[in-house]
Design a protein around this nucleic acid. Structure first.
Lengths: 227, 227
DNA sequence: CGTCCCCTTGAGTTATTTCAACACTCGTGG
DNA sequence: CCACGAGTGTTGAAATAACTCAAGGGGACG
């Protein structure tokens, strides 16, 4: 697989070219940058790689991945359109990021971001809010992984996706059962069985593996453990 | 148990009084504030409470606690002297904080912090770094809860404590087995058995329940899954 | 000296994992 | 058009890591 460095160097996928475009990471946080495409499962950046860029999903979905020495995989987060990811306080990335499906991702140089923050206090506040919101989401995930059972994990996951999608009753899953399992700290088999169980209990229906209809949202919220 | 509001109102524990003192939250982040004492298990702030203050451990240890509706408890983090906690991006606290042992805690008004950040760009950067570092620690914890077994969790925990204590081979545990269990997503029995197992395997020795000697640090690091 | 709290240990149970088999979808190419 | 294979998802049966329940040990403190 081609490295990001190589891609950026020649910018074969860059849309609109590496100059001229401005990325709106958040209100009052517009930074010069450019957009690149990544295909299904392509690596966006690697663990330990220099964190020279900050990223924002334009379309598609992205996952943060970490590996244990024996190959066990963990997904720290999924990023949806509008989400900013790859922000680090050190100089290197602590996890890798991969395209869950074909994606467009905006890249902003960290140096450019820092310049923007120094020039405008409101930009600094925006950057802090992005970071702090990421932190809050992680805390929910900690509780989920630390104290919830399989049904509660999957119910929480579906409720979150539903909210992120604007509250519709139909949820499209861009990610595989394997991704869901590695995100929820379960195995694919348990995820699959739990989907089936939720369907049997009339909380959801599953027209196809990647599309879920939330039938009884109140029941799901109850099942999620409310936390 | 008396509420924080009541305490701050009358400031019965305030050391040096609510005025005059400056708290050094981080390099170039000095904010007016005051220090309070909290006794063993006392609540510092509650979930859902207005986040009017930001806190820093002066001495002792603090835990972040969240509860599920049926009473299951989860500890999101332990805070040691120097650590800043209770920072929120919304207006309310998402978890409660409690004194693991008798503590001294510095309090800074959020409004004062915001003033300091507006007055000095370096202060803003410091605040962001505190937040980003908190985020990085949580990511390790996610991996631990999502993919590590009991031995790996406890080994990781001990290695971290050892590092936080400056790398000595002897670690003092301010927290109970119950706290450790709720932090590592286990039960007290499993934590206790795993301590015993690590001792049998000559990775540690346990002169008393609250004091651990790390015998074979390399082995512990290996056991922790290196992640 | 007794009580309380915390910790440890044992035995049996259970939720989840592991291993294995099979079904479905979707391109590709004969 | 159908066969084929790869990738993905589902389901069953057996194994296991961790949990639950229960009992007992030991230190702190009044």
């Amino acid at each position: 697989m081609r490295t990001l460095q190589a891609q950026v160097g020649s910018a074969p996928h860059a849309l609109g070219g590496p100059t001229g475009k401005t990325i709106a990471l958040a209100p009052s946080l517009d930074v010069p940058g450019f957009v690149m495409r990544f295909v299904h499962n392509e690596e966006i950046f690697a663990e330990e790689e220099d964190a020279d860029f900050v990223y924002q999903v334009v379309s598609g979905a992205v996952r943060d991945v970490r590996l244990l020495s024996d190959g066990r995989r963990h997904i720290g987060a999924f990023h949806m359109p509008g989400d900013v990811f790859g922000i680090e306080c050190g100089s290197r990335h602590l996890c890798s990021a991969e395209a869950v499906v074909d994606c467009q991702v905006a890249l902003v140089r960290r140096s450019a971001l820092e310049r923007a923050v120094q020039a405008d206090p409101a930009a600094g506040r925006s950057l802090w809010q992005i970071t702090a919101r990421t932190l809050e989401r992680l805390q929910d995930q900690l509780l989920l992984l630390g104290r919830k059972n399989a049904v509660e994990r999957l119910a929480s996951f579906l409720v979150r996706l539903c909210r992120a999608a604007g509250g519709t009753d139909s949820v499209d899953l861009p990610m595989s059962r394997c991704d869901i399992a590695d995100y929820l700290g379960l195995t694919i088999e348990t995820v699959s069985r739990t989907f089936t169980q939720l369907e049997r209990d009339h909380a959801i229906s599953i027209p196809s593996a990647r599309r879920i209809l939330l039938h009884d949202r109140a029941a799901l919220l109850e099942l999620s453990g409310v936390g």
